[in-house]
Design a protein around this nucleic acid. Sequence first.
DNA 1: CAGTATCCGATGCGATACTG
DNA 2: CAGTATCGCATCGGATACTG
Lengths: 233, 233
Amino acid sequence: MTKYGQFCPVAKASEIFAERWTPLILRELLCGSHRFSELEHGLPKISRSLLAQRLRFLESAGLVERRVMPGSRSPEYHLTDAGQDLYDVVIRLGEWSHRWFNPLIDERDLDPQLLLWDMHRRLHKDCLPDRRVVVQFDFTGDLAGSYWLILEPEESSVCWDPPGFDVDLIVRADTLTMHRVWLGHQSFADALSKRLIELDGAQELARAFPDWLALSHFASVRGTYQAIPTARA
Amino acid sequence: MTKYGQFCPVAKASEIFAERWTPLILRELLCGSHRFSELEHGLPKISRSLLAQRLRFLESAGLVERRVMPGSRSPEYHLTDAGQDLYDVVIRLGEWSHRWFNPLIDERDLDPQLLLWDMHRRLHKDCLPDRRVVVQFDFTGDLAGSYWLILEPEESSVCWDPPGFDVDLIVRADTLTMHRVWLGHQSFADALSKRLIELDGAQELARAFPDWLALSHFASVRGTYQAIPTARA
DNA sequence: CAGTATCCGATGCGATACTG
DNA sequence: CAGTATCGCATCGGATACTG
C-alpha cells in the first residue's frame, strides 16, 4: 500500500478506503455478504488472491473481523464498528453517482448474473408465498441467457444452470431494461406496458411478482439529469 | 483507468472518486485551491504529470472545469456542480478517519510545510490587524526548521525562506505538538501551559494569535478513541 | 469451499528534461 | 508558471496451480 505522507484525515482515510476494489468490498459487507464465496459473487471480476489480500488488509486496519464459527468451518467476515461507520460514505458515494451519471448504463457494465445476485438479497421476504417458488429469467438482447431464482421461505438462491425444480414463473426481459428498472430509471409498470418485460405463469404469481422484487437501494434517488434539458426541451 | 464492470452506482462512483490521489485533489479544490501551483502546494508528494493527468480526467468526467481567465494566463480549475456535490463524501470520509484513527499521527505524515499551507488557508481574516504581520514558526524536534507566515489584510502567504520583512511574532513549537493542536487532539492552551508551544513578540499579537489561527475543519470532530480505555483506565 | 503460492505481464507512476 | 513528452522501474494484479 502506498501512502500519501499527509496527516490530513481525508488522506489517512483514503489510504484505506480509496484503494481499488475496497469501496465495493465494503458495499458487499454492508449489504450482508459475509462468506468469501458470497463476496466473490458480488464482485465477479475480482481475483481470489486480490480479494483475500484486501480482506487481510481491512482486518489489519480494524474495519473487518474474521470470525471462524465453531459450527461451520467457513470463516465469516464482519464489519467492526469502525467499518460499519463507513455506511454513510458508501451510500452517499453511490447516491452521488446515481444523481449525476447513472441513467446511461455502459453496455460493458451489464451483468445479468450480478443483477440476479443483487435481487436475491433484497427480496421482500414477507411477501413471498410459504412454499418454494422457482422464477426463470430469460434475458433477451445483449447477453441473452437464462437464470433461475429459487425463492424459499427461509432463504433464496440464484442458479446459472437449470435447477431440478419445476418453474413457476418465467420473466422474459430485455437485459438493459431489467437493469434500468432495477436502478429506478424506468418503472416496472412502464416496462411491462411496453412489453420489454413479460411475465408468464400463474396469474397470482405474476401479479405478486413486482411486490417481492425490491429494487436497488439507489432506485429511489432522484437524478439531476431529469432537470437537464435534453434537446429543445 | 481500470473499470469494475459493474452497473452498481457505488462501483461507478468509485471508478472516478476512489482513484489514487483523487480524493485529495477534490479536497484541495473544495478548500479553495484553484491554480495548478496551489494544488501542488497542498499535495507536495504528487508528481506534476500525475496531477495534470488527474485534472484532465476529472475534467472529462465532468467534475472539474478548466477556466482560462482573460486577465491572467494562469488557468484555474473549478469544481462543477457535480464536483461540488462530493463535499459531503469528502468531509464524512475525513471525519470517519478522525473519529477512529487520527490521534496517532504517523511520524512519516508530519509535514510542517503542509501544515503552514493549511493554516494560511483557514486564518480568521477578520481578526487580523489592518497591517502586514510576519509570523515566524520555529519548529523543534522532528523536522526542525523555520517557516514564515505573511499575513496581509488582503491575502496571506507562506515562505520557506526568510522573507525580507521584520518578524512580528515568533512561534516556537514542537513539530508533533503543533500538528496535534491543529487536528484538535490537544488544545492550544494546554500546549502553551506545558511550554510545548511558546510565543515571542508583542503582548497584543501573542494574545491575539490563537484567535487568528483557525484549526483544521476536523479539529471539532469528537473521536471514539476517547471512550476506549487505554490502560487499566 | 476458502484460500495460498508463484509467476509474469500490464500499467501506474516518478524522475527528468523540455516548451510556450 | 503551467504544463507535456519520454523513459524506465516498481508494484499491482490476473492466471494458474496447489492445499487443508
